[in-house]
């Protein structure tokens, strides 16, 4: 089988020497102006493990300096080189469009933690709670949940507005978990990295009650066509 790392614009020179998962040499298969980067793979489907994920990431990042890169999600396997040929033939135009979209751009991740709300939990239901009391309790919990959601969107929108104008695209989730106010990825021109960092620092200073974590630059994982 073949383990797939990325689709790149066709390399003019051979790829740098790299080893990928299971210490297999990284290779590329070309078609037209694009190439698929892969290594041979044997055995069961790769499990989700930190070291393996970083190995995948290291291969993809090693390509970033000299290529436009469409990163492939961890764990993608192809049956053989014939399947690789078919993949590149069938999706050639989409890959070309995707490579044009990410050319010269990198992904930056932003996570924002906000204070955990002391849950104003209604007292646990009494053993003899009746139906009306149950619904009244649930109504209060639901109203508290919706108020928290409204507040989260208001705060997240304000933070996002500062960063969004620096980006050419974004994906974001508001309150994916109780403590995570915002989880977002921004596709930015590589040369805008410092400007983005300055904006993040300013956001942190202006919002001392939240915790900000900004990481990058990453391959554009969130801006690749899902297929």
């Amino acid at each position: 089988m073949l383990y797939l790392y990325a689709i790149i614009n066709r390399p003019v020179t051979p790829l740098p020497p790299l080893r990928g998962l299971a210490e297999q040499a990284v290779q590329c298969g070309e078609r037209g102006d694009i190439a698929a980067v892969y290594s041979q793979y044997h055995g069961a489907a790769p499990r989700i493990e930190v070291a393996q994920l970083w190995r995948h990431e290291a291969v993809v990042e090693a390509l970033l300096d000299r290529h436009s890169v469409l990163p492939v999600r961890y764990g993608a396997l192809l049956a053989d080189e014939a399947a690789l040929t078919m993949l590149l033939r069938e999706r050639y135009d989409r890959f070309m469009a995707g490579l044009a979209r990410v050319a010269g751009r990198v992904e930056v991740s932003v996570r924002v933690l906000w204070p955990a709300t002391p849950v104003v939990s209604a007292p646990r239901p009494a053993a003899d709670e009746n139906g009306r009391a149950y619904l009244a309790r649930r109504m209060a919990e639901e109203q508290a949940r919706e108020a928290r959601l409204r507040e989260a969107h208001k705060r997240a929108d304000a933070l996002h507005a500062v960063l969004d104008h620096l980006a050419v695209a974004h994906v974001r989730q508001v309150l994916p978990h109780e403590r995570v106010l915002l989880s977002a990825a921004y596709l930015i021109p590589r040369e805008a990295l410092d400007t983005f960092r300055v904006a993040i620092v300013a956001l942190g200073q202006a919002n001392p009650d939240v915790r900000l974590l900004c990481t990058g630059p990453w391959p554009a994982y969130h801006f690749v066509d899902g297929e």
């Binding site: 051979p14 080893r19 210490e23 290779q27 037209g32 970083w54 090693a62 040929t85």
Partner: peptide, 24 residues
């Protein structure tokens, strides 16, 4: 677009044996 089939070649030049990436 080229109609040539996929050409799979080893990425490493023979003079440079493949090295493990500096994994974190």
């Amino acid at each position: 677009m080229s109609a040539s089939p996929v050409s799979c070649h080893p990425a490493a030049a023979p003079a440079h044996p493949t090295q493990p990436l500096p994994a974190p």
